[in-house]
Structure formats: C-alpha cells, structure tokens
Amino acid sequence: MRKKLLLVCFLVPALSVFVAFFVLPVALLVPRSLDTPAGWAIYTQALSNPRYWSSLVATVLLSLAVSFAALVIGGTAAIFLERNAFPGRDFLVGMLVLPLSFPGVVVGFMVILLAGRQGIVGLAAKAIFGSRLVFAYSVAGLFVGYLYFSIPRVVTTVMAAVSKLETAREEAARTLGASPFRSFVDVTLPALVPALVSTGAICFATSIGAFGTAFTLATEINVLPIVIYTEFTLFANFATAAMLSVVLGCVTWLILFLAKFLPGFQVS
C-alpha cells in the first residue's frame, strides 16, 4: 500500500504539468474550432475550401517526398558509415548528425545561404552556366530545407539499427553464394525495415509540422503550419486556426500510429 502511494507521489508532478499544458490545451482546441455558427460543418467546409485543401495536399505530398528522399540518402550514408572503418569516419558522422537540433528557422537560413541570392549553389551555377540559380524561396527550397533536418535523423536511427544487426547473417548469405549486393538486398534490407519505417514516419511528422523553415523562407506555397499561423495572427480567425491545428495533429498522429504498428505486423 505504501509502495503504491509512493509511486503515485512520483507520478503526480509530471502528470499535472502534462495535463495542464498539453492535454487540456490540445483537447480544448476542438471546442474552440466549433466556436462558429457552422459547428461541426466547419470541418467539411474547410476541406472543400480550395485554399485549405490545396495547402493540406501540398504539405502532405512535400513531407512524403522529403521523407522518401531522406531515407534513401541518409540510409545509404548510414549503412556505409556503420559498416566501414576508415580514417575520418567519426568526423564524417559528426558532420552528418550536427544539424540534429538546429531549430527550423536556422535550417531556413541555411537554405538561404545555399540557394538564396548569395547562395553557394547560385554562385557555382553562375561560374559554370553564366546564370544565377536561386530556388530558396520556391517549393524546391522548402524541399531542401526539410531534407536538411531529416537526413541527420535518418542517419542516427539507421546507424543504430545497423550496429545491432548480426553480420553473421550476411556472411551466411555470402557463403550460400549471394553477391554482396544480393545479400544486402535479401538479408540486410529486410532486417532494417522497422527502423526505416519508424524513422521515415518521424521525418514525415517533423516535416508536416515544420513551421520555422517555411516561416524563414516565406515561400510562395503555403504549408499548413503557415496557414494556421496567418489565420491566427493576421485574420484573428481562432476557430479556423484551431480547426486546422486539429486536422494537422490528427494527420501526424495517424501516420506515427500506423508506422508504429505496421513494421510489427511484418516482423511477426
């Protein structure tokens, strides 16, 4: 009995912070979003509104594309780095995971430096083709920015997963006559699927909710978080902002939820 009491005492402080500043505010978003004459219809109305709908579709598509690209690029680099030892390897790993905790705004700035008017890419293009290449403020810029913060996440997760794999299995495939590539495709890759799915889902969730990068780049396409922000600050449209937040939260949660259970089914 005393043991239970002690456990409760240990749980209560964190739980009260959690309920007060997360559960309650997020739950209250729902009634706030219904705070219009339309009521629940606001959800169907919003989705038929071309501005919101196109923004949602664009955000989801962009996030999907980024997650996929990050998996391919980051995954290749991670497998290579975990499976090979060479001088400077640790330094390379360090470089690849450095942007892990860069806030979105900084990532946006990095894109400006890469592909803005004074960007490295632009200067290089001018030297080679004679014309400047500026794409920081387009969809391509957003894509590069999201890729920038997604690659480190993929690299850390996949490296951890690869380090836990037994090389003996790949060697077994080799002794059975598979080429290095075949044994990679047949043995290593399937074993990495859960890690790839989970890190892909996290990239997706981070991209879909990324506000800072889009905010800094102030691009011509309006991703959903920007729409929420402008609805709230510029138009003081609390109900719509709350409604879109609910939609955004649901989409993200759904993706993470699926990612959590899908690889489990495949493995078992």
């Binding site: 964190a14 959690f18 500043f21 997360f22 559960v23 309650l24 505010p25 997020v26 209250l28 978003l29 706030r32 969730a205 879909i208 909710g209 506000f211 978080p225 929420i228 922000y229 709230f232 609390f238 902002a241 709350a242 937040s245 609910v246 955004l248 939260g249 993200t252 949660w253 993470l256």
Partner: peptide, 21 residues
Amino acid sequence: SLVLPLSVPGIAIGLGILLTW
C-alpha cells in the same frame, strides 16, 4: 501519451496553450 507532444506539431500545441491559458 507522454510522447504525444512530439507527434503534435508545436504550432498546434502553442495555439492550444495560448487559447487555454
């Protein structure tokens, strides 16, 4: 549930906190 804040975009949580408190 504790990791939920990681899966809800910060902008949505921020809005919630603002509207509630």
